[in-house]
Design a protein around this nucleic acid. Sequence first.
DNA 1: GCCCTCAATGTAAGCGCTTACATTGCTATG
DNA 2: CATAGCAATGTAAGCGCTTACATTGAGGGC
Lengths: 346, 346
Amino acid sequence: MSRKNRESEHNLPTLADVAKRAEVSTATVSRCLNSPGQVQEATRIKVMTAVHDLGYSPNFGARALAARRTNTIGAIIPTMENAIFARAIQAFQEELHASGVTLLVSSSSYSPEIEEEQIRTLVARGADALLLIGHDRSQAIYEFLENRGVPVLISWAYDPTMARLSIGFDNRRAMAGLAKEVLRLGHRHIGIISAECAGNDRARARVDGVRDAMREHGLDPEMAHLIETPYSIENGGKALRRMTEHYPRPTAVICGNDVLAVGAVQMARELGLRVPGDVSITGFDDIELARVVDPPLTTVHVPHREMGRQAARLLVDMVAGHPARESVRLETTLRLRGTLGPPPAK
Amino acid sequence: MSRKNRESEHNLPTLADVAKRAEVSTATVSRCLNSPGQVQEATRIKVMTAVHDLGYSPNFGARALAARRTNTIGAIIPTMENAIFARAIQAFQEELHASGVTLLVSSSSYSPEIEEEQIRTLVARGADALLLIGHDRSQAIYEFLENRGVPVLISWAYDPTMARLSIGFDNRRAMAGLAKEVLRLGHRHIGIISAECAGNDRARARVDGVRDAMREHGLDPEMAHLIETPYSIENGGKALRRMTEHYPRPTAVICGNDVLAVGAVQMARELGLRVPGDVSITGFDDIELARVVDPPLTTVHVPHREMGRQAARLLVDMVAGHPARESVRLETTLRLRGTLGPPPAK
DNA sequence: GCCCTCAATGTAAGCGCTTACATTGCTATG
DNA sequence: CATAGCAATGTAAGCGCTTACATTGAGGGC
């Protein structure tokens, strides 16, 4: 559409139009909008009337260009199709909204390349700060963000060994806690169904957590049968089936997340295995699905909403120039439900 | 942060810097970036090298201001915490991305006021077009969009009586189809658990669909026991409990969506009612949950992903000046699963 | 050889806003 | 009563980009 065309179609009122109508300068109008305290009551009323009469609303691009800030925070999540991200993001947005900040969300489909592209896009769009999931990404992109002066908060992970500021939980410790419970019940043949670990520090940390627990119980972590598979109910089921085809069949299958676990539970039943009679299965996240499946899933509860809320506050502070001193660690809690029991007597 | 401050911190490369380094004019650099065909191979390479060396990336605000378009489409959904929206939006985004368009998503928390605010925000940010859910909203906001010249596509609804362009399915007919199946099995005492109808044309249409079917079977639609409740598993359960406390207890409970239905199924079992032996329950949407609950839920399958994909194509065309002639109707299909059976013999 | 055409590139005028700095007209002060 | 000080407002210079229009120069037709 040519410029001329567009102009003739819609001639939106500008700051200058408002100024003319209110018989003041553009500076005064701008001040009315941005720092009303600086302008006299009478003038302000005049201006606001003009704004209203004209149906004026400021042009975001122009504003960003002139003011060099956007009141916008960006977030990139692996996928929208996952209740845990959705929930956290919803809380995140609600909290940002309360601070007058707009949230831009995009999803990377778990692809590092797309994520990088999205980061650049969001920065180009003037995001004042970014919320990212997990630590794993190229050094180059971190440098890019640093150069740009864009504050970044990592979520979904708490790892004191990482330099970057983060808010989240200790995936490794949390999973170790669950695994210890499994081992305490007497399980010795452990299967692990994990999301793909490459580029996913959360998934890796969870697997490592299981191994930590095994080591602690004097087991060789290498003995655990590990299958990595993309996130979906179906894949969880397939992985379980593959696992049962090997000897020794695991008596407990620890899954990296609830979705995989639910698939595993359903497949187990399809295969005629009782859960937890023949095989115990555990998840991670505690999404709704966990309580809908039968029996309800033993899992690790993660305070997603709380994480979203706090992340928003931290980021708003960071943009305002008050960066948090240190990373925030949130607690997870074990949810012992129906899918975990002692191993079969044999 | 003062301007001076900011400048001293980060002096990002601009178009002009690239131009200088490549020893061409800013116009040429701009052309390299936006219509590379217009510029000679050799020049382009020189420019792209400079772009790369400097780590240049264009300033979105400036670009939007000068070009008067943003390659951005906005979408407002009631909530991210709902698999059906998430799924459609994910497909929507993927398709937009393929066309080089960025998606801005925000959620309204089912509040008309917030939705209106979000619409204005997105427009101010320069969204070239908008995807909205359902028809229900104030005339004023439609006029606002019209004045601004922002094309709008309504999704999740197909209603030929509405003037506005939409893509979706006929909620009313789809639900009527399901309800007819329920009635055909002999149910005469019908309960309806619906999302809140105020401001939600989809929910209303679904309720109306049930009533249509009842009328067709010679029943008085007023006889159906209707409970409206906000979207959540828990509320579905509560509604079912309330329903069972009334006489005559419905033998079939038709729910406006799967989430309510899943809550109802679980509550029914908690109350010692067999599903579908004592009470049949149906849903709408066919989300994952529907197949995880036991017994699996009879519901209406909606092609969410397909809707998202097609919506993206339509909107891209609209922005390009090729508005679709007419609304698009997608087919829904009945998914008869375990929660629907004949009424108890009595 | 002259002129026209056309492709490649350059020049420069904005796009709509914010804000440093200048101006104005007060009041309070000595 | 002159003047410093201050609050309210105005002036105008950009912010970084796109694009209409101008310029250049090479190739082709006569």
